[in-house]
Every structure is written in structure tokens, then in C-alpha cells.
Design a protein around this nucleic acid. Structure first.
Lengths: 314, 314
DNA sequence: CTTATCCATAAGTTTTACTTATATAACCTT
DNA sequence: AAGGTTATATAAGTAAAACTTATGGATAAG
């Protein structure tokens, strides 16, 4: 056993710092402080008796010897990763833990899980609702589905669909309020998220070419898409929602889309998982099913206003 | 950065245990306790979620997955060792620290270092005398020369010579005591080490075919070969010493070998160094010089009794 | 010149890796 | 069968390593 392998744990810091040429960035990657990285590398240099980095202002450049070692370390780490991959593969069958927002979980995912289960009876899906993205690398959660324009996470990301966002309300309200033009919406209660971002009623009215006077409208504020949908389903105003999320309710005749005017680009649905997960086989099956289900789920609305001339849709 | 590399330091225990199929032997190799190895491997198995060993009575057999991982780890470690080798090579020039027994250091090595230095002026040798073999892997000592039949050490060993052991005394004593037959030695003071092992006067007399009566002989006990040589050099009796150690003194006419009857196999001189030392180039130069010097140093004695018929020498 | 960013270092804190002690099982010898 | 030896497993305790926090110095950019 090579005695120099006693310092093997230091090599993680070394390899990361070598790649970034920066201790701070290495520290971020490894989720430790800069000082920890600095000390580990100093320690490694002392033990090996070799100077691996030379400081150039704020950059840590590799010495010739540092470059040589970095190459070998990279190769060794790659070999180890391959070894781990080889022994850590789980079969397709088994449990899969999926996390998504409360809205998506309750409105979309959970109502459809029976479909997945009947198609893949040997895969058991456990749904976990969470407001934030959960850790996918170091926790026991395997897959996440999130709705956001950009997700900062150090895992694999895959856009499933970009879901247009339309107004939705109960069928009764369409008749009751005679909703045949976008302007008429100003007479209704409008349901809006506390922090809607791009998916605000203002954005929609702009898209529809209608001038909105916020102070003349009655507002209902909600914290989740689900709450919005639940509100309008019982006749309380009109809300904005993505087509997929509303599709089940529309299919059941509980909601209609009064105007076929979307906010686009719509709501991005992203699938996230750890590329190094031993459950990759299982995750891939779920991902395919999810993608299919999301794209097929956008069926035509039962009742909808015709497009105006400046907003033609195929 | 592969998150599974967090467990990289556990892989030392794993690889050793895999090779030995024994935690105890791994523990010995790594200089830790069996319990430490057991816990590290249990930890690794838990973290990876993979069973790596299965117990068969007193053996720890690798599972299929354990075997697979062991192969990858071996390969990765080999790559790292190569990397270390590549960056840790020192040039031929520089300092070399040599350890040897007090006797060899003072009687043989130090008096000859000027020869090495003039031949290799860019290599500076530092001689360290020690009663025991020093640690060559984790200390700053590069090379050891020891005299012993068997040396237990986890480093590279190379027999330099097997040096015959003869009686030596001052030239005056040969005349004074008329030492023309081995039997005459019983009338002299005999110098012997406290724990001579194979190199006792009894062994020599047996070799010479002379019956020794210990209680009729006057004894001087010494702790080192050097002390013995110093004693007889000043006329105090006869001591046993290896040819090389005595050669300088013989050449200078300070000692003679009264009888050309050796104890053989003689005293084994072994060179030891760490095969992974960055100073290998330097060590090899020193080793070659040492070997040459030791074999050339066994010159003929100035005054010696002729061999008897049952102890002919070429 | 000021501000921001980066690494180096010392001191303190937390976590990991180790040791010791003991239990259990397997193996060997008489 | 009994007794002794050898091997690993585990719990509790200890020591060492790895980390954090705080601070200083250097550099780069505005």
C-alpha cells in the first residue's frame, strides 16, 4: 500500500481547486469554507514536499507539477466514479421518491399516479410536496418537478414542457358575467398569486391588448396555484393557471378557459435528478411517462372564446 | 465533483481488506486496529448502500460487487501512485541521509565518505548512527545499512555482501603469544559481544575444530563490534570481526588476522530503502558505490596463518 | 482612494477516525 | 468434549483531523 495514499482525502480539494484555479470556487463546490480548502492544500503540499499552486494576484495557478498531478487525479477519480457506477446500479423495479410543489402534487401528479402504477406496477412512487426544491444529491429524494423560469441547482435538469398560462373560471361565471371579451374580466374578481412574477394579470391584459386599471378591480390573493384554482372552481372569480395544471379540471367540466389568449413563453416545467443516482433506470422510466402525460394532457377546452385577429393560434 | 468521492478515504481500508480478505491483516498493513478497519468498511457499505464483504467463518470474502469495486479501486490507486511518482522525483544531486550501526558508521562508513564525496561532489551524505533500524518510510532517513541475518521491515532490502568473520588482534600480540595454532588463542583474552549469536568464539572454535573450555578463558565483554576492535587494537586480546569492518585497520597495519579460518556464512550486510522514495536516483548511486566499496575492501591480510587442510580457501 | 474579492493564517469548535474493551463465532488441538 | 486461539462486530471513550470564524494582507477594478 503506497504510503502517500494517506493523503488521498486531500485530493478532493486539490482537484477542485485545480479545475477552478480558485480556492473560493472549490470551496463553494465542496460546500466548505475557503479557509478549509487553503489548509487542506497547504497540508498536501507539505506532506508531498511539492508546491502545487503558485499565486498570481487573485488566481491560484498550477505549477508544472501541480498540472501533472491534477491530470492523474482526474483520471483516478474518473476510474473510481466508474467503479461506483458499476456497483450502485439499482434495477428498474423499486421505490421512487418524487418531490414537487404542493400545487403540482395535488392538482396534477397525485390524481394521475394510478395511471403510472397500472402501467408500471413494479415501480412504487412516493410523492413528497415541498415549497422549495429539495436536495437531490444527499437526501433520499430521487426526482423533482419544479415550475420556474430558472432553477439554480447542481443536478441534471430537463425541461418537460413550457406550459402556456391562460385565464380559468367556472362555466357558470362565463354565462353569468357574459364573458365574451377580455374587457369584461375587469368586472370580475381576479385571483392572483402574492408574487406572480411574469404570470400576473397585468401581463395577461397587456398580452390581450387591454388596458388594466388595477384599482378598479376586485382582487383575491393566494399563495399557490392550487388555491387559485380551488377558488375559481367554486365560482370565485377568474384566475390564471397553466394549461396542464388546469387540464384535468377542464376535462371534468369544472373549469373553462374563457379566452384562448396565453401568456407565453409559458410556465416551464423542469425535471431534476442526480445524474449519479443509482436509480437512474427507474428515474428515466418515470421521466418518459411524465413527459408523455404532460404533453398529452393539454387537450382542447370544452368552451372557449374565439381568438381575436392579433392573437391567432393554430 | 462526484459526491461519492466523499468516502474516498475509506477506500484505503477497503482495498487492503479486499487484497488480504482479512480485516486483521489489513489493520496490520495500515498500522491501525482491526476495529478501525471494521468500522470504516461498515461505514463505506452504509454510505454506498452496497454490501462489499460477506463473512465466511473467519474470512471476509468479497461479494460480486465488492470484487468489482476492488478492481476499480486498485486501478485508481495505481494511477495516483504513478502521479505521485511523476511529481515527487528528486534529482541525483542533493542530500542523502544514511543510517547504520554505530560500529559500521564509525569504523567503515565515515572513514570512507571522502571517497564518495570526491567521486560524487554533488551528493552530500549525512551519516546517522543508530542501534536499531530507523523508519525509512515516514522519517527523513533515506537509506539504512544493517548487519543482521534477517531484518523484518516493510521496505526494499538488498544484500550487499556476506562478510566472513575472522579473529583479529594486534600484530604485537601474534609475536608475543606466538599465535601459530588456534589452540593458542585459549591463552589470550578473548573479546566477545554480550549477545554474539552465531558469531561467538564457540562457533569459531567449532569451525576451527578446537574444543573450547569457556571457564579456562579470560573474557572481555563488549556491546558493539567497534568496541571490540578498539580493544584489540590496543593489544587487549583477540576479537572476532567481519573482514570488511576490519579491513581498514588491517590495511593500516593496526590489526592482523592470525588465522584464516572464517565463520561462514558470514555477517550479512543489507541495504534498505523505501522503494517509493523520491530520492531513488540518489539512493541508487550510493548503493552502487557502497556495493563496490564493500567488495573491493576485502583485501588480503598482511600477516596470517596458513589454512589447515580441512579449511582450504581459494 | 475606496471597495470588493481573493487567499493565508491563527484560534477555536465540531466531526471523524481511531482505540480499548468486550462479546460472539469459528477453528484447532488435546 | 473442553479449552485455547483467532477472527470480526460493536459500544463507549479518546485523539486527531477537518472544519469554521475572525482577521490580515494583497490585488484588481472603479
Amino acid at each position: 500500500m503506497d504510503k502517500r495514499l494517506r493523503f488521498i482525502s486531500h485530493l478532493r480539494c486539490f482537484e477542485s481547486a485545480a479545475r477552478f484555479q480558485s480556492y473560493s470556487q472549490a470551496a463553494r463546490e465542496l460546500s466548505v469554507t475557503q479557509a478549509a480548502v487553503s489548509q487542506q492544500i497547504r497540508n498536501l503540499e507539505q506532506q508531498l514536499g511539492v508546491k502545487l499552486f503558485s499565486r498570481q494576484g487573485r488566481n491560484m495557478l498550477l505549477t508544472q507539477q501541480g498540472q501533472t498531478l491534477a491530470e492523474y487525479v482526474r483520471q483516478a477519480f474518473s476510474t473510481l466514479s466508474s467503479g461506483f457506477d458499476k456497483i450502485m446500479v439499482e434495477p428498474e423495479d423499486g421505490v421512487l421518491t418524487v418531490t414537487a410543489s404542493l400545487s403540482f402534487s395535488s392538482v396534477w401528479l397525485v390524481p394521475r399516479l394510478w395511471k403510472f402504477s397500472s402501467q408500471y406496477p413494479n415501480i412504487s412512487v412516493r410523492a413528497v410536496a415541498s415549497a422549495q426544491l429539495e436536495d437531490l444529491r444527499y437526501s433520499d429524494i430521487d426526482v423533482a418537478v419544479r415550475q420556474a423560469d430558472e432553477i439554480k441547482a447542481d443536478v441534471h435538469q430537463e425541461v418537460l414542457i413550457v406550459d402556456p398560462v391562460y385565464p380559468y373560471c367556472s362555466p357558470n361565471l362565463v354565462e353569468e358575467m357574459d364573458l365574451h371579451s377580455p374587457e369584461k374580466l375587469a368586472d370580475c374578481w381576479l385571483v392572483e398569486a402574492i408574487d406572480p412574477g411574469r404570470f400576473s394579470w397585468k401581463t395577461w391584459f397587456d398580452t390581450a391588448g387591454v388596458k388594466m386599471q388595477r384599482e378598479l378591480i376586485s382582487w383575491i390573493e393566494v399563495t399557490t396555484w392550487e388555491m387559485g384554482l380551488n377558488a375559481v372552481m367554486s365560482g370565485h372569480g377568474v384566475c390564471l393557471a397553466s394549461a396542464s395544471m388546469a387540464s384535468e379540471l377542464v376535462n371534468k367540466g369544472l373549469l373553462v378557459r374563457p379566452f384562448d389568449i396565453p401568456i407565453e413563453p409559458g410556465l416551464k416545467f423542469t425535471l431534476l435528478y442526480d445524474k449519479e443516482s443509482p436509480k437512474l433506470a427507474r428515474i428515466n422510466i418515470f421521466a418518459e411517462w411524465l413527459k408523455t402525460e404532460l404533453t398529452q394532457g393539454d387537450s382542447s377546452p370544452i368552451s372557449v372564446a374565439r381568438p381575436t385577429e392579433h392573437n391567432l393560434r393554430p
